[in-house]
Design a protein around this nucleic acid. Structure first.
Lengths: 133, 133
DNA sequence: ACGTGTTTACGAAGATTGTCGTTGACAAAT
DNA sequence: ATTTGTCAACGACAATCTTCGTAAACACGT
């Protein structure tokens, strides 16, 4: 009913798209062949290519010529994509409570004392930042 | 190539599906009309019904008769769905680092001192739990 | 010049999602 | 009994995602 469908907004990634983006974020860039190898070669060459073309059309990746191949690289930062995904989850699943999200996160996995210490310092920094402003 | 096709596994929710699940998690249960109202009546009755039918087929919700209407209720807990979604994000976007996820989370939003205190105690609890085992 | 291998481009097929229109069941009011 | 209003079921349709097959472009070795 609402005359929506801007098409130019970020939006989320689908499963396969996220697989591909994950590789580019981790490696920095990649050709079709490189991305495909990173995915364990479980999908065909043209499938990976198609994903990259779709992602490029969405504005999520770009490419430059390299020899006779294309080298693709991410145009959206993983942190921004992650922030959107987290916001979505906090709102839709944890009813806006970041605490519950954190509780679920630490419940599901084991952390070393060092990791927990670093997470505490992240909270410390956030607190100080809150004081300043 | 892996001979999957389990169909019985959890999997993730799409955007609209998550909208509907969010309502059921928050309210506990709902009829089609109730869910539709909770979504601001921006989608048609039959659309909401279809979503609930798809979700039921996926095993995410169930229903019981109530008068002449159906009352739908979630069969998967929000915490478990949230845990899966978080695992996915940590792995695909934050390279397995929960710390980075937390950093992004606190970067994107403002927290009160109380909220941060509660998050610290969540970490404390996780630490103690780690000691015990 | 010719074949071979690598790579992109085109486009189609199948699955899933999201949106409804229409129909039929059923009960309450008349 | 007939009408009316509520609600689920069925099926259609368009959009999107995912997977490729096939073709075309191009460089390289011979």
């Amino acid at each position: 009913m609402t005359g929506r469908r801007g098409r130019r907004e970020p939006k989320g990634f689908t499963e396969r798209e996220l697989d591909v983006m994950s590789v580019l974020w981790r490696e920095g860039s990649g050709t079709v062949t490189e991305v495909r190898q990173a995915l364990g070669e479980e999908v065909g060459y043209t499938t990976v290519l198609k994903m990259l073309q779709i992602l490029e059309e969405k504005g999520a990746v770009g490419h430059e010529q390299e020899g006779r191949a294309y080298r693709y690289f991410p145009l959206v930062e993983s942190v921004r994509a992650g922030g959107r995904a987290l916001t979505r989850i906090v709102n839709k699943i944890f009813h806006g409570s970041a605490e519950r999200l954190l509780a679920t996160l630490v419940e599901d996995r084991e952390f070393t004392a060092e990791e927990i210490a670093r997470m505490r310092s992240i909270l410390d920094r956030a607190e100080r930042r809150g004081d300043e402003e």
